[in-house]
Design a binder for these strands. Structure first.
Lengths: 174, 174
DNA sequence: CAATCTGATTGCAATTTGCAATCAGTTGCA
DNA sequence: TGCAACTGATTGCAAATTGCAATCAGATTG
């Protein structure tokens, strides 16, 4: 995972930033899952990332200017990872990527509901979500009022899981 | 480059399709560079892909349904690679990716001019470009009339190269 | 004081990458 | 006809990368 600088093409350079199996997954979990700590990212992602890979990618994303790390005042050992503006502006790309995947790939119902909501909300919803992220991660932007986008996405996900439980007829794994 | 199916998340599945160093570069060269043959892709991309990697990725992209291969009637050995609708609908994602890269990464002038034009043109231009690609690669859609998007992008690129030559004061490499 | 949780690091085997060389069939040209 | 150049690949192989398992030291909790 070195930084090649193979060419100055924007698409190539973008690929050199997150053209691997894990970087964008980590950013997805921070952005949509609201995860901020190492352990949350390690255990939270359903793809099962290994701890050394996670450590390596977090370091790389910090070097690239996509993340910053600060200490957690409540726990001297905890680190809090925050998105930079550079990472927050990936939201529209992630929304497009999710929409494309929903059309062409065998996505699962529960996991694609968020992509669907984000697609239906369109650019205004993305903008609001980015402002919420700026509030949470950069401390800029006024505090969001009313229902946050993340709460809407989370509610949609939980409703989908509930529908699925009803249909399958058993409780989800704890 | 096996297909994992780590999770049914749309973003994860999308990453499993082109979350590597080369797949999207190849698609970029076919889409924006108009390359259709193995050799064109091998020598044309400025990132310098190796022939075995190219062969492997072309095969994989065919298995994933992003490309099809047909024989060239004028040359019994030549293969022509064509985009599928699945690949053509990546155009908006590539446009966003290029726009993001232009803002945040050290892109070169000549190579980012296409991304800039595509960004300025917005969704209407992307739609027109996708229809041109459908005409060229799928045989559907009516033949484009007037200046094609690819011609506009190519003209912009050449003008940028010319400006650069003037500024630097020497001829470009042949 | 012991168990547990924190963000990592290390060893190591398997896989992936990509350079160099090579291949067999096709075409162009003298 | 003969031969070089070109076509889309394939193979060998060394180097780099990946990721599982085990482990680490310091901080917190009970």
């Amino acid at each position: 995972m070195n930084i090649d600088r193979r060419s100055g093409c924007p698409i190539n350079l973008s690929l050199e930033v997150f053209g691997d199996r894990w970087s964008l997954i980590i950013l997805r979990d921070i952005i949509f899952g609201g995860r901020r700590h190492f352990r949350e990212l390690l255990n939270g992602s359903m793809e099962g990332i290994a701890s050394n890979i996670l450590a390596d990618r977090l370091k790389r994303l910090m070097e690239l200017g996509m993340l910053t790390k600060t200490g957690d005042p409540s726990h001297k050992q905890k680190a809090i990872y925050s998105l930079t503006e550079m990472a927050i502006t990936l939201v529209p790309i992630l929304a497009h990527l999710g929409a494309w995947g929903r059309v062409w790939l065998p996505v699962s119902d529960e996991l694609s509901i968020r992509a669907e909501l984000l697609e239906k909300g369109g650019p205004p919803m993305w903008e609001q979500f980015m402002n919420e992220l700026r509030y949470e991660h950069l401390g800029t932007s006024p505090a969001p009022t009313g229902a946050t986008v993340r709460a809407i996405l989370q509610a949609g996900y939980e409703a989908a899981v509930a529908r699925n439980v009803e249909r399958v007829g058993c409780d989800p794994a704890p």
